[in-house]
Write a protein that binds this DNA or RNA. Structure first.
Lengths: 350, 350
DNA sequence: ACTCCTTGCTGTTTCGTATCAGCAACGTAT
DNA sequence: ATACGTTGCTGATACGAAACAGCAAGGAGT
């Protein structure tokens, strides 16, 4: 069959020969430096013609070898599957990153080769840092093990972490969301709606993004003169005894740290013959798009995932293009308040 | 603040200095040519150690300039927005590609930098062919202009096109879906359900993937001894006059080439007080996930998008890893038959 | 003492592009 | 006649990795 194997594309020296000039002149014309190189119009015309005739296209590898940049932005995620999956929480971040890359004329490298047998993705594997193929990278997702981040920062590799993250003794850039204020406002709104005992249910594993939410909740309670009632545990421990006790104690609203908790709450509510939001209000602080019943979505704090992705990519590009400019290393974007689908006034109808 | 700026990424000469050998030796060790270069184990060990210590990773531009591979698979789409968007028809292909890349230990380069002002993406732009940074690429989506493909093939760049595509005088590899047989079977099923006048509505712009469907439709009609009744036009021309006429002529089933046509048909059906599938059956040949009403989806031919993506990536990797092996250059995967949500027996109830 | 072979490397060139330093030819000024 | 400036280029080099040719040191064989 006739599929060709690698052939020669014309290069600048071919163009030069055809135009009767040197390769350096061709380079100057192509890069618009004809004026500064004092190339007369007639010569420029001849070179352009030769370029057209031969169908010359620049070799990007040679170009970036010279320029020391590859115009590649890396995307690395610590979570198991690449956030390309649409149901994934991280998907929307990736779209933001992609949009910004388009805008800035960068290509994206998805580091999929870093997956280990256990599904975890690590940056350093047998001592190698694959990220180096990209000019810089955006990091997504959470790892318990912050050593990868520390090492990357130590090497001075340019990267931006999506999500606030603190690693003691290590400075690096991140783009986060203001979960604290947003959660505070959620409590304010619930108080406005007449709720006086507001529960907070969340994961037993604490990380920055969750700590911020809990802090906002506590601040909100304090500002309203209410007792904070947080319960932190694994979702499968959320049982009827706890729920009955909570309702009996007068709890009318629940702030769910994660959507999985809301789902569980929904089950408990249904099991007890109650109604959301008629009897109980539920607000989700970290969710995707599902709801308690098909067709209705949770009152869910809006995380500006797209914007966070965009901002992270933008910050990275700025670092790459002007490493020495002074700029903020951290960015906190506002969340949008939840819709009122699963929250309502105390005792009020749906 | 204390964020380090990019210290020059280490190169082979840095590794060489640290290991007390020459750059050539480092290159030999890294590329597994230690044996043929008669480098003793002890030296190999020292070099490897230096590589680890410095976190050395090869510069992909330098490598590809030299004609070497980078374990980078490119993904280029001709359509406007990158198929990362979940609503996009192309999204599922990308997931398949990604999964295969993970399996084979390749990273993915999404060519987002090729977008022009008009939203089109071209491979050759202002004299650059960016695809060269990847070892080979998977091409997605349709362009009217096949010159990019012809040129790429002419240069012998390794690529696999997702979707059957014929460019006269140009041979290249593709992975397609067997729309023809699948559409034939759709007609068979409709005939089984008692339909005798089956309309085919489709885009006026013909491309391989659509031509195949139409051919399958015609074959199916012929096999059943029915007259083929195809109508090809822009979706906005699909109007009530045509619909009334079609129904009056005894048409009971419509095969819609694209989901947009089914949507339009749904409107017309509702407008005339009819019911799908009670009065009219509708089958979609190219759709995503929507339906005539929320909660019900179209009877839609299943395009094995994930598998096509996987197969394309797999084929590409095989080409890269053994360019001279003989293999098929084209692959046709089966579609899955439509569910029976919007098709029913003639005169039968829903 | 000599040739020859093996081991263990190194020096040099190449890929295609961009840039920098500089040079020949000609004109103008003094 | 000499100095100087301008025009219109060219040659050489660097970027980082890979490949080829080859060389010095040491040992074996005669």
């Amino acid at each position: 069959m006739a599929i060709k194997s690698r052939q020669q594309a014309p290069k600048q020296s071919d163009v030069a020969r055809r135009a009767g000039v040197s390769q350096a002149t061709v380079s100057a014309v192509i890069n618009g430096r004809a004026t500064v190189h004092r190339i007369p119009d007639e010569t420029v015309r001849r070179v352009r013609e030769a370029v057209r005739d031969l169908g010359y296209v620049a070799n990007p590898s040679a170009r970036s070898l010279r320029g020391k940049r590859n115009r590649l932005l890396g995307v690395h995620t610590f979570e198991s599957v690449f956030p390309i999956s649409q149901r994934d929480f991280y998907h929307e971040f990736l779209i933001g990153i992609e949009e910004q890359a388009v805008a800035d004329g960068y290509d994206l490298v998805l580091f999929t080769s870093t997956e280990e047998a256990n599904g975890q993705r690590r940056i350093y594997r047998d001592g190698m840092n694959r990220l180096n193929v990209a000019d810089g990278s955006v990091l997504l997702g959470f790892t318990h093990d912050s050593s990868d981040i520390a090492r990357l920062a130590g090497e001075g590799y340019p990267f931006v972490h999506v999500g606030r993250r603190e690693v003691p003794g290590v400075d690096f850039r991140w783009v986060g969301a203001d979960y604290k204020s947003a959660t505070h406002e959620v409590v304010d709104r619930l108080v406005e709606l007449g709720h006086r005992r507001i529960g907070y249910v969340g994961l037993d594993h604490r990380m920055e993004a969750l700590i911020d939410r809990e802090e906002g909740y506590r601040d909100g309670c304090e500002a309203a003169g209410l007792p904070p009632l947080p319960v932190l545990m694994g979702v499968h421990h959320l049982g009827v005894e706890w729920f009955d006790h909570a309702v009996a104690s007068g709890m009318t609203a629940f702030v769910a740290e994660d959507e999985s908790y809301a789902t569980k709450l929904g089950e408990l509510v249904r099991e007890r013959g109650l109604d959301i939001p008629g009897d109980v209000s539920v607000v989700v602080l970290r969710g995707t798009n599902d709801g308690p019943v098909p067709g209705r979505s949770w009152s869910s704090m809006g995380i500006p995932r797209n914007e966070m992705g965009r901002a992270a990519a933008r910050m990275l590009v700025e670092i790459l293009e002007d490493p020495h400019a002074t700029r903020d290393d951290h960015l906190l974007l506002p969340c949008t308040p939840p819709g009122e689908t699963t929250m309502a006034a105390v005792g009020g109808a749906a």
